[in-house]
């Protein structure tokens, strides 16, 4: 599903502004793997935007969270910004929906690593769900600290 609406988002302190010129999937996905739990502090959410639609203004710190990916955040306020594969130059951005007012009422796309979800983070809804085994059977993943 593609939405050509232009989006603008910013981190908590305003130092980083991100614009998306369209082509993104207006449905965030949730991940409960241990890495995402640690980074987000609880429940990790992201939505996909193609690389050529994303522009970023402001200083960003990128942390190489694995051989496969980077996680970017604002070095001033710590707001989580995106996760992105680093093994592909055209990799799309998995942006944090909380940055964008327009994303406030988007429906969920999916929820993965559901068997690793905290007891306190049981998400209600009829969106597609996958346990760790179900997800890893079909997707590339980071071995080790996932759950």
């Amino acid at each position: 599903m593609n939405d050509v609406t232009h989006l603008t988002g910013h981190c908590l302190c305003g130092a980083v502004e991100i614009t998306v010129s369209g082509g993104h999937d207006p449905r965030p996905g949730i991940c409960h793997c241990r890495m995402c739990q640690r980074w987000s502090g609880g429940v990790f959410m992201c939505f996909e935007a193609p690389a050529d639609a994303v522009s970023v203004n402001g200083d960003v710190t990128r942390y190489a969270s694995s051989d496969l990916a980077e996680r970017a955040f604002c070095p001033v306020c710590g707001s989580n910004l995106w996760m992105r594969n680093t093994d592909d130059a055209d990799a799309s951005f998995e942006l944090m929906p909380g940055l964008f007012d327009a994303a406030l009422d988007w429906p969920l796309r999916s929820e993965i690593y559901t068997d690793n979800a905290m007891a306190a983070a049981q998400i209600g809804g009829s969106h597609p769900k996958a346990t760790r085994a179900e997800y890893e059977a079909k997707n590339n993943y980071v071995k080790g600290d996932a759950g």
Partner: peptide
């Protein structure tokens, strides 16, 4: 609003 913007979802 602030927790949502900082963490992307909610602060727990």
């Amino acid at each position: 609003d602030m927790c949502r913007r900082h963490t992307s979802s909610m602060f727990m």
